[in-house]
Design a protein around this nucleic acid. Sequence first.
DNA 1: CCGTATCCATTCCGATACTG
DNA 2: CAGTATCGGAATGGATACGG
Lengths: 154, 154
Amino acid sequence: MKRTSFTKDACPVARSVQSVGDWWSLLIVRDAFAGKRRFGEFQKSLGVAKNVLTVRLKKLVADGVLKLVPASDGSAYQEYALTENGCGLLLVIAALGEWGCGGSEVHLVDRKKGKSVRLVLRSEDGRTLAPDDVQLVPVSHAEPRSKRARQPAP
Amino acid sequence: MKRTSFTKDACPVARSVQSVGDWWSLLIVRDAFAGKRRFGEFQKSLGVAKNVLTVRLKKLVADGVLKLVPASDGSAYQEYALTENGCGLLLVIAALGEWGCGGSEVHLVDRKKGKSVRLVLRSEDGRTLAPDDVQLVPVSHAEPRSKRARQPAP
DNA sequence: CCGTATCCATTCCGATACTG
DNA sequence: CAGTATCGGAATGGATACGG
């Protein structure tokens, strides 16, 4: 009677959820993108219990999302930094942020110019698409251009 | 000693996590994008217990992600369809899918042409940016071009 | 076929006290 | 400051039986 695991699941979404699909992990990653690196910074920002934070950080490190780096200032302690892989989660955070908007309190900017940045879907030929123009296809057992496309609800 | 709630949180990411930040919700939404609409379809696809599925579906309906629609074929039962708001989650699913890649088993295609679609960051002036070029800024108490930008870890 | 209801194991989370 | 140790309550998830 164990909890079902998706680590072996074929779908990448399922595997991602396995890594960051709980309450805290994504928020920790969000804070990491916002520049936080120290245990205490996360703890204060999130208001999470320290033991819980410890467990989450360890899992994120084990999953290759964060890594421990020696130090950045003179401190004798270690800091948590995003791995290259973890940086890829920016798209996820960005997408969640755009979706949750309604009094947006966080957004993306170009680091060089400080200009606002948005997340868009782009087809191979360079066109920008709306979510409605796009269909999710499970590659495993499906003909790429199946006729039973998603119905947008009549 | 309640669980902390983020519904009132200022950050849109936190609010999103509140809605879809658990194991099942996102996978249900993924299946919805893949064309599934019936209770049994979700149940079989996910292998989740029925009571759990019931609770999740109700929450997703309550949160305005899914809605019940009368029927699509002759059946007397209702079906679950994505609301307009729920469709916005496609970007999140897409981002999670791209991140979890490594033997991708699901991807996005243009509904009309069947061509592959990717998720990109685009700045105001139309340029495409890499995650490293971008910075997450909490609007509340932060100068847009702070100097202590995120360090990509030495 | 679509759920609801019940039971139980596991897990999660918050508070707090403690170590270095 | 950065964790570890322990505890108890709460929520979650799985199995299954039941009803419309």
